[in-house]
């Protein structure tokens, strides 16, 4: 493993008195796709928000390319080269698709580069080009997700945080979006930190995976090996194991508990 581009050590984040993240540490090496899996309420989104600066951790540190960023405002973090695609897309509904993309490039000062990236993005998602002058609020969910990813890409980031890009999309669209995510990673060398509930999809595209449960990381391994683990198969991929008597053993517990 090369030197980590993003290093999170022992962060603890609270919502008021509730501890959402109980000491999470992980690393994201440059050029990789790393995924964090977990069920509803495991704290995945909170981890991403803590990394991008929307929430501040009470303890621990977040280091991006050698700089500590845990107390920075999100707009500053973003200027360092880290784009966040938030959960639920969060496009600007009353701006046109093109304006949304331009806002993605808000921090850039090179009009030529922006124009070039706009073409690249339209190449990834041709449907956005067709709808360039439509209001973003009138797009379908899948198109909004494409827009959210493209908008983050317009900042020409070195790292992207993706929060549940598959949320609410049809399996076909999910496949399409994940293909693009892989292309972004391969063609542009953008490091990707992916948070997903769709474990199957995430484990197929990512290099390394962490499993988050109730605010703690309970498992960390390469995705190939994670895919083989019984617990992952049973609880995240829904592959059922037949018991000796032809029934599922309802008492079976996760090994890390």
């Amino acid at each position: 493993m090369t030197e980590a581009q993003l290093k999170v050590s022992n962060i603890e984040t609270y919502y008021g008195p509730i501890m959402a993240i109980r000491g999470v540490s992980f690393e994201v090496p440059k050029g990789d796709i790393v995924t964090i899996l977990g069920a509803n309420g495991a704290g995945k989104t909170t981890v991403l928000k803590t990394v991008s600066g929307v929430m501040d951790p009470q303890k621990g540190s977040v280091t991006f390319e050698g700089r500590e960023i845990q107390r920075m405002d999100p707009d500053k973090v973003m200027r360092l080269g880290m784009s966040h695609v938030p959960e639920g897309r969060e496009v600007f509904p009353f701006l046109s698709v093109r304006e949304n993309l331009r806002m993605g490039a808000y921090t850039r000062r090179d009009p030529d580069g922006v124009a070039k990236d706009l073409e690249t993005v339209f190449g990834y998602f041709p449907v956005l080009k067709e709808r360039a002058d439509q209001r973003a609020g009138s797009l379908s969910g899948g198109e909004q997700q494409m827009l959210a990813i493209s908008r983050a890409l317009m900042a020409n980031p070195r790292m992207m945080l993706l929060d549940e890009p598959s949320l609410g999309l049809s399996p076909k669209l999910v496949k399409e979006i994940f293909d693009i995510i892989v292309r972004i990673n391969k063609e542009r060398g953008v490091t990707i930190l992916l948070v997903e509930q769709n474990a199957n999809m995430a484990l197929q595209v990512a290099d390394y995976g962490y499993v988050l449960e109730v605010g703690r990381i309970v498992m960390a391994d390469t995705c190939e090996r994670l895919l083989q683990k019984e617990d992952i198969k049973e609880f995240y991929l829904g592959i059922k194991e037949e018991g000796a008597r032809g029934q599922r053993r309802w008492k079976k517990r996760k090994t890390w508990r």
Binding site: D75, M78, E90, F92, F94, E99, N100, M103, A155
Partner: peptide
């Protein structure tokens, strides 16, 4: 203007504006 559109963006979705690196404050 860029900053004018950014203002619209900020009032439509403050969180997303932050993510775009718009200095919301």
């Amino acid at each position: 203007t860029r900053i004018g559109v950014a203002m619209q963006a900020t009032s439509q979705n403050q969180l997303a504006a932050y993510y775009m690196g718009i200095p919301v404050k």
